[in-house]
Amino acid sequence: MNSSEVLVVDKLVKYFPVKGGFWRRAHGQVRAVDGVSFTVQPCQVFGLVGESGSGKSTIGRLLVGLYRPTSGTITYRGKMQMVFQNPGSSLNPRRTVGKTLELPLRLHHKGLTRKELRQRVAELLTQVELNPEYANKLPRSLSGGQKQRVAIARALASDPKFIVLDEPTSALDVSVQAKIIKLILELKDQLQLSYLLISHDLSLMRNVADVTAVMYLGKIVEIAPTAELFANPAHPYTQVLLASIPVVSVEEEALKPTKRLVEGEIPSPLQIPQGCSFHTRCPEAMEICTRVAPELLTINPDHQVACHLHGKRGES
């Protein structure tokens, strides 16, 4: 691990066995994450975009230790925490906000008195711009945005350096999303945090992430500083994704790559196509794509793409 990085993920692989039949034997595997490497710098927001089944959420769960990697390594400094997607289920409906926040405090700062605990809970609530009186409330009586603030406070309670944000606003209304994202970014500067932001919303990623990686069927297909990625998308899948975003203004329309439609949907991660996994839907697929899986290649400083269109053409 280099001195500057807060997180290094190296050749991370996670296969889930598929069990079935009378003896519940494994008879196949889902290749959820298939050889993913990236690094995150301090105070950076690293974005992972992709559609369902791309493996982006699995990476988040691997980072915080909810899953054990099949192979590969994850190295990080400090503590790692997570904010989940669904504010409805990320808080225990039968515990008050105060109780929810006390748990990490008790576990990470042993020997706090009741009074100190209560005070820390109040501080945490203030930090996420909630009234300290909310400590006595049950999640049921909070709005979606308020619940997500509590979830953020819970993540902060153990003084982490790194937080995995798994679709933190996708269940919220846009007007609420804006406020939560603003809070998340303010906290980052205030507390010197780094984030892994997992989302399917490219417009959100454009505004929040410093670096964005696009995932397709367990692999990173393109990775670049966000502005570069959106200005010069190199992978056909990234271009398709960008072209598919519904936007709200004519100016944005101009920023999208010219419309191209892909046929069909993401194949099941149980049966990942041979060669480049996108070749079944790719508008520019070539013969080589059906045989050889492309490696991530650097096409610009910091801009990498895994696509034969950008490889040494002579080979094909």
Binding site: K182, L202, R206, N207
Partner: peptide, 18 residues
């Protein structure tokens, strides 16, 4: 306010929401 809150593709940051 609603239109402002939508993240835009040109990436000039997010509005304050409502």
């Amino acid at each position: 306010g609603l239109l402002d809150s939508v993240p835009k593709l040109h990436g000039q940051g997010l509005s304050a929401g409502i």
